[in-house]
Design a protein around this nucleic acid. Structure first.
Lengths: 130, 130
DNA sequence: CGGGATCCCTACGGATACTG
DNA sequence: CAGTATCCGTAGGGATCCCG
């Protein structure tokens, strides 16, 4: 390794202290990123809307995920004490900024996932021939 | 399920069948993304180099992760049958394309992680006052 | 409606020991 | 050196019941 410019925020994801590690704890969570994207596309959404939109998520996981994202300041939780309670979730400005990099990943997935699938098939076929 | 237009690659991360879900299985894995980044910065690397670079990873997880990435066609594994075996890992062209969107996330983390931390502190303080 | 609390099971992942 | 195999604890996460 050659000299590292300290003014450039180098990617020390390898050190356990790097923010990158904790970023993975946030968006690396399957449901968390889906929730962010859902709110990014849908704007303000109710709990039941999110639940319906994100197929396969249990209410335990959804609640847990939303709490986590609220704690991280990525979304707001608004309770309207009507007759049946109404709760709305919405991305904060900070949450909206996360939407962009996530969409880059989305585009990568859409563009290259077919290649990944082909690679998998090939790999699996080779291994089965053993 | 209603009719699905197969030509339009819309972002159905919410449908369990969408590539986005499987993308999360790949880069959502803590060690996988770190390995990709390590190889992105370091080029061709040996197993021991990766092990040293990615702090805190067990050899079980590292091996498992590398196999997964190899299977997905993101990196190549080259065995040199010398006296002690030498194994090198290197990103494929496909793996290199993944590096870009991951770096966008990295930049987001470095730019906003402080805000996240502040939000957390505030959230925790409010909750403890209950 | 939007959760909180509980039970329970599994698979993720670390530590250790062995091999080509 | 670069793994594979095994054991084993723990936490992730589903199902269920209940509450404001």
């Amino acid at each position: 390794m050659d000299a590292v410019d300290e003014s450039a925020p180098r990617f020390d994801a390898f050190a356990a202290s790097c923010p990158s590690r904790r970023l993975l704890d946030t968006i690396g969570d399957k449901w968390a990123s889906l929730a962010v994207v859902a709110l990014g596309l849908g704007g303000r959404m109710r709990y039941s809307e999110l639940s319906a939109r994100i197929e396969g998520v249990s209410q335990k996981m959804l609640t847990q995920t939303l709490r986590k994202l609220e704690r991280d300041g990525l979304l707001t939780r608004t309770v309207t004490p009507s007759v049946p309670v109404r709760v709305d979730y919405e991305l904060t400005p900070l949450g909206l900024t996360l939407l962009e990099p996530i969409c880059h990943l989305k585009e990568w997935a859409e563009a290259h996932m077919a290649e990944v699938d082909r690679a998998r098939d090939e790999y699996d076929r080779e291994k089965l021939q053993t």
